[in-house]
Amino acid sequence: MNADPLIRVFSASYLRIHHEPKLRSIELEWHAHLQPNEVRTGFQVGMQIAEQRQVQAWIANMTHMGPISSEDQEWIVANWLPRLRLLGLKFLAIVVSDDARNRLSIHNIMSASEQKGYTPAETVYFSSAQDARDWVYQSCCQPTSLPVVTRRF
């Protein structure tokens, strides 16, 4: 991968947010079991950074994230997902958690997102953060295989 190094733009005990300028992407790297205010704060800070930096790709790295409460799931669907759609993301990469309850939470959120039409055009699930980064890089930066057109005068 030829992307620039990730730049940490936010850090807390429960979340680190990294920005990759070349790809116009952010990665939210969640940690541990979260308190309700931490989930909402993390998503709001992520959205502010995404808006400021006009990102086109969002990587949700939930490898070490615990379950998301039903109240926070409802908040995400009602408040955060509509804003995410307005952001105009092209790519959403979700790195699946080790926690089965988190995977169920994400399934519920993404099912509601699809029903409401909030899901970005390209949403892909990964088992590793590096695979997600590679996919974003390939999607954003690799030339497509368009046919070569030769002009003759």
Rank of each mutant, 00 (worst) to 15 (best):
Y14C: 07
Y14E: 03
R16F: 01
R16C: 02
I17N: 02
H18D: 06
H19G: 01
E20K: 09
E20A: 05
E20Q: 11
P21A: 04
K22V: 03
R24S: 09
S25V: 03
E27L: 13
L28K: 14
E29I: 06
W30M: 06
H31L: 05
A32P: 00
H33C: 14
H33S: 14
L34I: 07
L34D: 08
P36L: 08
N37M: 12
N37S: 13
E38F: 02
E38H: 10
V39F: 05
T41Q: 15
F43A: 11
F43R: 10
Q44A: 14
V45W: 10
Q48I: 06
Q48H: 11
Q48R: 15
I49V: 09
A50E: 03
A50Q: 11
A50C: 10
E51K: 15
Q52N: 10
Q52W: 04
R53G: 01
R53V: 03
Q56D: 07
A57I: 06
A60T: 08
A60P: 00
N61M: 03
T63K: 13
H64K: 13
M65G: 06
G66W: 06
G66M: 04
P67R: 14
P67L: 02
I68Y: 08
S70N: 03
E71Q: 11
E71H: 07
Q73D: 00
W75D: 04
W75V: 02
A78S: 09
N79K: 08
W80H: 07
W80Y: 13
L81C: 05
P82Q: 02
L84D: 03
R85L: 07
L86R: 13
G88V: 01
G88Q: 03
L89R: 02
K90Q: 14
L92D: 11
A93M: 08
V96L: 14
V96S: 15
V96F: 06
S97T: 08
S97W: 02
A100R: 10
A100V: 12
R101Y: 04
R101E: 12
N102Y: 02
R103A: 15
R103P: 01
I106M: 14
H107L: 10
N108A: 12
I109H: 05
I109W: 08
M110W: 07
M110N: 12
A112V: 00
E114G: 06
E114S: 12
E114F: 05
K116P: 01
G117P: 05
Y118R: 02
Y118S: 04
Y118C: 03
T119G: 00
E122F: 10
E122A: 10
V124N: 07
F126K: 05
S127L: 11
S127V: 09
S127N: 14
A129M: 08
A129D: 04
A129N: 12
A132F: 05
R133L: 05
W135H: 06
V136Y: 12
V136C: 15
Y137E: 13
Q138Y: 14
